[in-house]
Amino acid sequence: MIRPFLLMLCLMASVVSSVSLSANTPENIKALKSMMPEACNFSGEFTQTKQIKSLPVPLVSMGEFIYSCDLGLIWKTQKPIVESLVFTNQKLNFLVPEKLSVENLDGVQHDFLANLLLGLMAGNTEFITKEFDIQISKNDATGVELSLVPKNKMVKQAIDSVALAKPSAKNELQISITDKNQQVTRIVSSETQQYAMNDKLSKDAAFSESCASLSADGCKLLLNPVRITTSGQN
């Protein structure tokens, strides 16, 4: 069964209206759960739109992703640039550029956004409620919308808020991240394929094929995450 899984980052303030409830109440957590995917291993596509204040046009990019709840996520941008981000469950994150060598992705922001994506895809409400203050609001356009405000002060230095919405009509989940400079990144992502649960996921032919075809280096790192040493070898 293919279930659409949409990730969209949108400008929270522009569409928020009416009631606003604060704190991580059971109602908020229930709303959060309703936005989480049910599948464990799946792949999909995304479109990202980043609005930078001083640039006349938004930066639009698109690509594909593959996720395994046992391993992590490969997030590959294909247009206009080609590079992959690998977020592993072992908390090791990598940047796989098209031509240059693989890099470790260190730093609070990278870790935080990696954990956020992994948390959302895994349906990890515990992580979300631990890291964010959740506010629920109702919106005519998107229905229920959740606003996640980071609790970590270092994260707060870079990210103002993350908004999640799942319009029932479109069967989409929308998430928006507004950074400290009021740059807004919106991503629309859709789940296109699910993979069967397997004890040895690495041997799951369909998943391995999709993973390797998306990013050979990224897939190796996902299956065997090892920190890159200074010489560039892993």
Binding site: Q48, K50, I52, K53, S54, L55, L59, S61, W75, T77, P80, I81, E83, L85, N93, L95, P97, L105, G107, V108, Q109, H110, L113, A114, L117, Q157, A158, I159, I177, D179, K180, N181, Q183, T185, I187
Partner: peptide
Amino acid sequence: QAKLFRLTNAPLMSFEKDPLGVHSEYFN
């Protein structure tokens, strides 16, 4: 440019002050 498109890129300084993202990296 690649950094600007990158999902995890959330600079500490505005684009006008740090278009290449090197200063945000330092302050981070």
